[in-house]
Design a protein around this nucleic acid. Structure first.
Length: 482
RNA sequence: GACCCCUUCGUCUAGUGGCCUAGGACACUGCCCUUUCACGGCGGCGACACGGGUUCGAGUCCCGUAGGGGUCGCCA
């Protein structure tokens, strides 16, 4: 027998955007598929008429694509298969694995409330299981609506979980849950089993919040006489307050991280290592490397807290891994968007942009940091920072800057070396330390008191801009100290 | 409440009976580098939830307790 093809799926329901928990699940499945040379599929579970929103499907798919998760084969939409599901609940009634339940939703709610108040089991009391054939026939003839319930067998069920090993549950702990609504449409668990079977899913990898569903689904598989897939319940991603991430609690969806300057590879990398370990000391990997080293036995069983700070650290590493050219390319539209420059201006100054990237790269943790840190490379400072003003906006600074402006203006070539020498010469002439010149100059050309090395800034900015900005700053200082 | 899962530094994790005076990463922090800010380098802080067993020996196996999480819809 040839080994079964690995076929896995991610099954989002369009009731919200793609949050990191679902993203992490998608990555786990994707990694398993790609590592094994199998197929990664997407199924949209959009059968909830009330909560599903068609307009949410596209953003979810976009987020998956952004993470680099390309799926194989066509997307399966559950909403298009509703009629297909119907016959299976009927089949289960006929085979004796399910029965009709005429209890009204109101009655069931009352049952539940009573059970809760009496602290009894919150399971269906099987009222309709004992209905005789005649009673059923009479109700049917009277046009009474019925939902279809699975008839749970005696005994216990054990399955081997890829992550947690053997898990056992007494069947009596599981109620005769509804597999088809009174309109005949399949509920979640039935639909999932049918789909996973039809899609020939080999591994069902999902969050451990689905373990109870797995037991229910196993009974459906058995009733239908189908072979079980391998189940793996990976740990959940928790918020810092240890609750599972959810849109309802205001957690960010994946696209928000994108907007905040997180790289898809960094997110992919970080999410991969949540609840899974390469079992080495190395943490930074490209998606390609993660596919290579993936091992489905390395999942952890304990839930993991999502730490945005560590995500940011991963992002920093991935930024350093990117070439200056690639960073410049992704940054260009962002700079235009931020009104720092124009597309037209950038077209002829590619090298300039790349130089700016080189200088700022070690200081960036997010792509957006480049925007914040680079403004003075595109626009003359209109404001000067607090610290700089306090220290440099004094009358003594004026002659220093004037002398420097003159020297810089007289330079034949404006390089790292020539600007450094000019500043050193001026310092020597004034008999003061270079620092006395460096700081006011930095403030004059950038408006802030920190950043790349001064000579790097000067050489990048260019002679004309530097002289102009120093002179302008002199005027500002004169005005405020007058 | 019932059931299921889980429990190593604040967080993510390594550790599969002796290699553990428990390793790495993020965060925090000291020093060095740098007349700025980062980066980098070298240090520091900091954990086996608790209690019983099993064993010559337990973070590693077993049991119990506590704690955390999840599930208990004609939602998915």
């Amino acid at each position: 027998m040839t080994p079964k093809e690995v076929r896995v799926r991610i099954a989002p329901s369009p009731t919200g955007y793609l949050h990191v928990g679902t993203g992490r699940m998608a990555i786990a499945n994707y990694l398993l598929a790609r590592h094994a040379g199998g197929k990664f599929l997407v199924r949209v579970e959009d059968t909830d008429k009330e909560r599903s929103k068609a307009e949410l499907i596209e953003p979810i798919l976009e987020a998956l694509k952004w993470l680099g998760l390309e799926w194989d084969e066509d997307i399966l939409y559950q909403s298009k298969r509703i009629d297909h599901y119907r016959k299976f609940s009927t089949q289960m009634i006929e085979s004796g694995h399910a029965y009709r339940c005429f209890c009204s939703p109101e009655l069931l709610t009352a049952d539940r409330e009573k059970a809760k108040a009496e602290k009894g089991p919150m399971r269906y009391n099987r009222r309709c299981l004992s209905l005789s054939d005649d009673e059923v026939k009479n109700k049917l003839d009277a046009g009474e609506k019925f939902a279809t319930r699975i008839r749970m067998p005696e005994g216990a069920t054990t399955y081997n979980d890829l992550v947690s090993g053997d898990i056992t549950r007494q069947n009596e702990e599981i109620e005769d849950f509804i597999i088809a609504r009174s309109d005949g449409s399949a509920t979640y668990n039935l639909a999932v089993v049918i789909d996973d079977h039809d899609m020939r899913i080999s591994h069902v990898i999902r969050g451990n919040d689905h373990i109870t569903n797995t037991f229910k689904q196993i009974h459906i598989y058995k009733a239908l006489g189908w072979e079980l897939p391998i189940f793996g319940h990976v740990p959940l991603i928790l918020r810092p307050d240890k609750k599972k991430v959810s849109k309802r609690l205001g957690d960010k969806d994946v696209s928000e991280y994108r907007n905040e300057g997180i790289l898809p590879d960094a997110m992919f990398n970080y999410l991969s290592l949540l609840g899974w370990s390469p079992k080495t000391d190395r943490e930074i990997y490209s998606p390609k490397e993660l596919i290579e080293i993936f091992d489905e036995t390395h999942f952890n069983a304990a839930n993991a807290v999502f730490d945005e700070e560590k995500l940011e650290a991963f992002n920093r590493e991935h930024i350093q891994l990117m070439s200056d050219h690639d960073i410049a390319a992704t940054l260009a539209p962002m700079l235009v968007e931020a009104d720092l420059t124009t597309k037209y201006w950038l077209e002829t100054r590619w090298e300039y942009l790349r130089d700016v990237v080189t200088l700022l790269k070690p200081r960036a943790r997010r792509l957006s940091d480049f925007i914040e840190l680079s403004s003075y490379f595109f626009l003359a400072p209109v404001e000067y920072d607090e610290k700089g003003r306090a220290k440099q906006f004094v009358p003594e600074t004026i002659p220093i800057l004037e002398g420097l402006a003159e020297r810089f203006e007289g330079l034949n070539e404006f390089t790292l070396e020539s600007t450094e020498k000019a500043l050193a010469d001026e310092a020597e002439k004034l008999e003061i330390k270079k620092g006395k010149l460096i700081h006011p100059t930095r403030l004059a050309v950038s408006g802030i008191s920190q950043g790349p090395g001064l000579y790097d800034i000067l050489a990048t900015l260019g002679q004309e801009t530097v002289v102009e900005r120093i002179r302008k700053t002199i005027e500002v200082i004169k005005k405020v100290t007058a």
